[in-house]
């Protein structure tokens, strides 16, 4: 093995340099670094973290019980109730804080369900191709051609408008977009030589799909999922606004907005509808900024 040894000596100085550079520039670190350069994304991350923290520690930070009638009906903000009270006399700030729990669990829960469904179906369609692909892609087309809001309204009214049902319905209907993205990525990645090498090495098909192909299409999945959370929050708000969402007395940003349906509230009691509207805006914007930053950070072509 004399030749091989000669090679080693030649390469070691070079690879030592690479070792120092390489150790610092691992993939995750590179992405983190790029993400942190994106100012709006970092701002989004901070705001989103604050919302999560307030949702987690809601009992500690909310000034009073969100379900207790503790003041006048629809009272304007005062020292006692910082954001005033709603039309039943409950503290609005407390309800706003507790509502973030509902909105976030709808967002994260629905997206978690549909990312799993979409990824698995997309991977199967892309990897196996032929009639399997045909069937799954036509199914996706069918799901994509539903009038989304109508179907959700119908399903929720059949299953009953409760938090878990909304999560399940949104999750079961949201997968087609991710399914298409994953299929596309898998189609291109399965032709890569390292996947062929996996086949030649005799790995099982699930191992090839889940350990060699899917980790390499993580970036588009992750980006799509962040935007999906924002969409699901808006969808829950719309459902609640239409009265098919989370039912009172449980607070959600959407059903708090429902109270703004009357003209008097809209024109003379802004404390009832501006704060929940602002929260939806903040949550969705912060998530979208994060998604943007993540997309740029994971795009190998944006070399900075």
């Amino acid at each position: 093995m004399s030749m091989a040894n000669v090679n080693t000596e030649k390469d070691i100085p070079l690879s030592n340099v690479q070792a120092q550079l390489g150790a610092e520039e691992s993939y995750m670190r590179m992405i983190t670094k790029r993400f942190l350069k994106h100012k709006l994304a970092v701002l989004g991350l901070i705001v989103f973290c604050l919302i999560i923290l307030s949702a987690v520690f809601a009992p500690l930070i909310s000034p009073s019980d969100p379900y207790e009638i503790s003041g006048e009906f629809a009272a304007a903000p005062s020292g006692e109730h910082m954001l005033g009270t709603d039309q039943v006399g409950r503290d609005l700030l407390s309800r706003l804080i507790y509502a973030s729990r509902v909105s976030l669990s709808v967002g994260v829960g629905a997206v978690a369900i549909y990312v799993v469904i979409g990824t698995v179906l997309g991977a199967i369609a892309g990897y196996f191709g032929k009639w399997v692909d045909m069937v799954i892609m036509r199914l996706t087309d069918v799901f994509m051609s539903f009038p989304y809001l109508m179907v959700i309204l119908v399903l929720v009214s059949i299953m009953g408008p409760d938090l878990y049902n909304i999560i399940i319905v949104l999750g079961l209907l949201g997968w087609p977009a991710i399914c298409r993205i994953v299929r596309g990525s898998v189609l291109s990645i399965k032709e890569m030589d390292y996947v062929k090498a996996g086949v030649a090495l005799g790995y099982s098909t699930p191992k090839i799909v889940f350990q060699h192909i899917l980790p390499n299409c993580l970036a588009p999945i992750l980006v799509n999922a962040t935007f999906g959370i924002a969409q699901a929050i808006i969808m829950e708000a719309s459902l609640s606004f239409l009265g098919m969402g989370v039912q009172p007395p449980t607070a959600s940003w959407g059903n708090m907005l429902t109270e703004a349906q009357s003209l008097t509230v809209l024109s003379s009691q802004p404390w009832l509808w501006v704060p929940p509207g602002m929260m939806i805006l903040l949550a969705v914007l912060s998530i979208n900024f994060m998604g943007d930053g993540l997309r740029d950070a994971m795009d190998p072509k944006s070399l900075k």
């Binding site: 993939y27 890569m192 030589d193 390292y194 062929k196 090498a197 996996g198 030649a200 060699h212 390499n216």
Partner: peptide, 12 residues
């Protein structure tokens, strides 16, 4: 099998 392109034959 050993592949031609060493850049695409190893899982990144």
């Amino acid at each position: 099998i050993i592949f031609q392109d060493p850049y695409s034959s190893l899982n990144p």
